[in-house]
Amino acid sequence: MIMSQSGNMQLPDAHGYLDRVIGELRSLEAPHKNTLVNVLEYLSDHIRVTRSEIGALKTGSGNAQMFSTTTDELEEIVTETARATNRIMDAAEVVEKVSASLEPGPANALMEAVTNIYEASAFQDITGQRITKIVRSLQSLEEKLASLANAFGPLDELATAEQQPEGDAALLNGPQLEKAAASQTDIDALFASLG
C-alpha cells in the first residue's frame, strides 16, 4: 500500500494504483477478467465520487465556515432566549411587587401565576444546556471531517461549486446574527435614503 512519509495511507495514490491495476487487467487475455475489472471500476468510481463530495464539503464556497456559522447561530439562540427570559422575569417581578398591595384573593392568584412563570422560565437553562451539547457535537464532527479530508489528500481540484440559491431564494437567510445585523435605525436610514 502506498504510504506517506508520516506513515498515513494516501488515498489519491492508492486510487491511482487501483486505476493502474485496472489498466493492466484489461490488457490481460484472461477469460474471466471482465467481472473483476467491472468490480474494480465500480470501486474506483465510488472513490472518485466520494473524494469529490468530501472536497466540496471541505472547500466549497461558504462551506469552509459552515460549522462556525451554525455554532454561532446556536449560541445566538441561547443569548436570545436568555434575553427573552429575563424580560419575562422582569415583568413577573413587577407583578409580584404589585400583588403585595392587593386583597388576599387576587394577590394569591397573582402570586401563583408568578410562581408558575418562574418555574417555566427554567426552560432557558435546559435548552441552553442542550444547545451547548449540540455545539460540542458539531465541533467534534468538524474535527472528524477535517481528519477525513486530510486522509483523502489534496481536494481543492475536486471541489465542486456549491449550489448557491438564486433570485428570491437568495433573499431567504433567516434572522441575522446580532453582530452582523442592521439596527432598526440603520434600516430607517437606508429606507429614507432610497427616497
Partner: peptide, 17 residues
C-alpha cells in the same frame, strides 16, 4: 450556585417566595 444567571434569578425569586 449556577453558571446560568437566569437560573440564579429563578432560584432567588422562588426562595424569596
Amino acid at each position: 450556585v449556577d453558571d446560568y444567571t437566569t437560573m440564579l434569578r429563578i432560584l432567588r425569586n422562588l426562595l424569596r417566595q
